[in-house]
Structures are given as C-alpha cells and as structure tokens.
Computed example of a mutant assay.
Amino acid sequence: MKLSVIGCGYLGAVHAAAMASLGHEVVGIDVDPGKIGKLSAGEAPFFEPGLPEILADALASGRLSFTTDIAAAADAEVHFIAVGTPQRKDGTGADLTYVDSSVHNLLPHLRPGALVVGKSTVPVGTAGRLAALVAPTGAHLAWNPEFLREGFAVKDTVEPD
C-alpha cells in the first residue's frame, strides 16, 4: 500500500520507517530541508534504538523516500498527519498551526476514497473540524493519536508484544 507521512519529527520519521519496513511504500514529507536531507541519507536526526537500521533497510529497498514536496503524497492511499502540536505561546492550549497547515496543504492532492489519519495529539473537536474540510474531496478522516515510548518506539511499532 502507498502511504504518506506528513511531518518527519520523532513520531513521523519512526512511523514512516516502520511502515516501510513492514512492506508499505512510504513517502515522508516535511517542510525542513535539513531534516529531509538527513533522513534521505539514512541519518536519524534523533536517538531511537533500531531506527538507523530500519531506516537504512527501508531506503535501500526503495520503499521509503523523503521530500519537502507535498505533491509527492498525491498517489498515496493513506496519509498520516504526524506534525507537532506545541503549546500556544499564550499557554492556553495546543497550537494547531502545523496540523491545520498540513491538512490544508494536503487537500489538493487527496483523491476520493483516500484516508487521512491524524496521529498528532489534538484537542477534542479538532478531528470533526478537519473532517469537514476533507469531506468535499471524497476522502475520509480518522484520528488515532500516537504516544510513542522514547527508546522503544521502533520496537513498539514494528514488533508489538
């Protein structure tokens, strides 16, 4: 299956590499060219046991690629939103700027029947609001936030107990 992962920080990079190691064709997309350059070269931009190995294997297999171009998501069947949701500067809640931007930028590339899956942790009501934006494209939206255990993210994703 062809997947896109939008956001290649800790959550997204691990998810992209893990899904490719499980046999899916995955494109990881991020706005940070430095991060994309490192990941494309097989360098994990953070420490996570097992990530360098599955990253290298997935890249060598051709099932994993990274880019800054959101248009690369166009032929994916499932799109994962894995961007950060930092605290707002005023401290009153989550800053959804990156989540909203990811969905808005993905909209022109969605095809009917595609699935957008939110992995970012968001406040109640966010998925409903974004589902209304996605619906006119004929795609569907679901939200399943991911909570990775640092140091065990690869093991938990690729080799669940």
Rank of each mutant, 00 (worst) to 15 (best):
A20C: 06
M19K: 02
V26D: 04
P33Q: 01
I36W: 00
F46Y: 13
G37N: 12
P49F: 13
F47N: 14
V27G: 01
E25K: 12
G23V: 05
A20E: 02
K35L: 12
V26Y: 11
G34Y: 03
G23C: 08
V27E: 07
S40K: 12
G23D: 05
K35S: 06
F47R: 15
E25D: 14
A41S: 14
S21W: 00
I36Q: 04
P45D: 10
L51M: 11
G37Y: 01
G50L: 12
S40I: 04
I29H: 07
G50Y: 04
A41R: 14
V26W: 10
E25F: 07
L22D: 00
P49G: 14
P49M: 14
K38H: 10
G23P: 03
E43I: 14
K35R: 15
H24A: 11
K38P: 00
P45I: 07
G50I: 11
M19N: 02
I29M: 13
S21H: 07
G28F: 00
G50A: 14
V31R: 10
K35P: 01
G50C: 14
E48N: 12
E25G: 12
L39Y: 07
E48G: 06
I36V: 15
L22A: 11
S21G: 09
G28C: 08
F46K: 11
V26C: 06
S21V: 01
A20T: 06
G28V: 04
E25W: 04
E43K: 15
V31P: 00
E43V: 15
D32P: 01
H24G: 01
L22C: 04
A20K: 02
G37R: 15
F46R: 09
V31G: 09
K35Y: 03
A44C: 09
G23T: 01
I29G: 04
S21R: 13
D30N: 06
H24F: 09
F46D: 11
L51K: 12
K35T: 04
G34F: 04
K35Q: 04
S21A: 14
V26L: 08
E43M: 13
D32K: 06
I36N: 03
P45G: 14
M19A: 13
S40H: 10
P33D: 05
V27M: 07
M19E: 02
L39H: 06
P49N: 14
K35E: 03
A41T: 10
L39T: 07
A20F: 00
D32R: 07
D32E: 08
L51I: 11
G34N: 13
P45Y: 10
G42S: 12
V31W: 00
V31N: 10
I36D: 03
G50P: 12
H24S: 09
A20G: 07
I29S: 08
E43H: 14
K35V: 05
F47K: 15
S21N: 07
F46W: 05
S40V: 10
L22K: 13
A20M: 05
